[in-house]
Amino acid sequence: MKKAFVIVILVLLILFGGIFGFKLYGNYMMHQALAHMPVPVVSVSASKVVEREWHPEVTAVGSFAAIQGVEVTPQLGGAITGIYFHSGEYVKAGTPLIQIDNSNQLAQLASDEAQRRLAQINLRRTQTLIATKAASQSQLDSAVASYQSAVAAVKNDHATLAKLAIRAPFSGYLGVRQVDLGQYIIPGTAMVDLQSWDPLFVNFTVPQSDFARIHVGTPVQVEVDSYPGQTFSGKITAMGAAINTATRQIDVQATVPNPKTILRPGMFGNVTVIEKRLEKVLTVPASAITYNTFGDFVYVVEKKTIHGKESQIALQRIVKTGIQRGSEVQILSGLRAGELVVTGGQIKLHEGSPVKIPASGKA
């Protein structure tokens, strides 16, 4: 019984050993065959590292503000008796907007006008009498004072009436009306927003490290999300008098023309301050950069002799990148002008992969 069991075990060992040995032999033969096969050449697109002249830039996030903007409010209280505008319309400076009840002030004006006329008559009479020495100097002085007081009362009435007839303080666009006819309002009640849209201010801050790079008159360009692809140009017109000690930033204000009035106060935009001087930089297409957490790199195409034949291979190169403008990325270190970098097809590459570049430069 034991002998038969041993025989079965030996047979199984020989059987499985043969199968395992055959598998090893097959893998060995396959490895040998692959070892003698040529490494496949990957078709890629490539571009040269280019030296360009760029204007240095300072970037920031800014907010548009009206050069003239105000919430129209009354100085005196009362019931609204007239509304002479429509929400959203353009008005010129001095245009009547709202009338507050002025009936009492008109009555007061009529009374004060009568007092002024009487004071004027008394003054003329006293001047005639004093010429004939029928009146004293003190009587003339009193008549003059009474007349001047009456004139001042009339002027005060006119000033009060002007405050009750609210007009546009400057030309601009009105917002949404916030009061109704017959409503009683008090001083400071918001009635309507008035803004001037052309030009606009752009307010932003820059760190003190960039302070020496900007000055009044420096050009700026602003991009807003509402109008992708459009750039609005202007220039710096004012700078803060001191650095903010809490943030170490300085306030900067630029003026941007808005002739089509498509921008609005309160919008935010990406501001680029463009220096006048030029500096030379190395650039590559953004598609050439492979970004990862371990460091950015590119594949550089170099010539190498393999088996006596000159070939092109792709080698990884760690690079340090700077700013990006459009489709170009600044290279601070890692590349030289004129070197060839892969711009398409990197996903098929590894260190030392043979590559070919079609005549068109595109894979």
Rank of each mutant, 00 (worst) to 15 (best):
S43D: 11
Y25R: 06
V342N: 02
L340V: 10
V216S: 12
Y184W: 03
P219C: 09
T73Q: 15
N258V: 00
V216D: 10
P38C: 10
A152E: 11
T231S: 03
I9V: 10
V329G: 00
G77S: 08
F201N: 10
G88V: 13
S327M: 07
G78Y: 15
K303S: 08
A79G: 05
V192F: 02
K348W: 04
A286C: 06
H350F: 04
N292W: 04
K48E: 14
I347A: 13
Y173I: 15
K276D: 14
Q178M: 13
L263G: 06
N104R: 10
L194F: 02
E223R: 15
L109A: 13
G175Q: 08
L315W: 00
G94L: 03
D157Q: 02
A152V: 00
E71H: 01
G17M: 09
V252N: 06
R213T: 02
R248A: 07
D198P: 06
P96N: 09
S353G: 04
E57L: 10
V49Q: 02
K280V: 11
T160S: 15
Q120S: 13
S171E: 11
A134P: 04
V206D: 01
G345P: 04
T247E: 14
F232D: 01
A165I: 03
G62K: 12
G322E: 13
N270K: 00
Y173R: 15
K362W: 07
Q75V: 05
F204P: 01
V11Q: 11
P56Q: 08
I357H: 12
K235C: 01
P228L: 06
T255I: 09
A242G: 00
T272H: 04
I98Y: 00
T59A: 08
E328V: 13
R167Y: 14
R317A: 13
T59P: 11
A66Y: 01
Q139R: 12
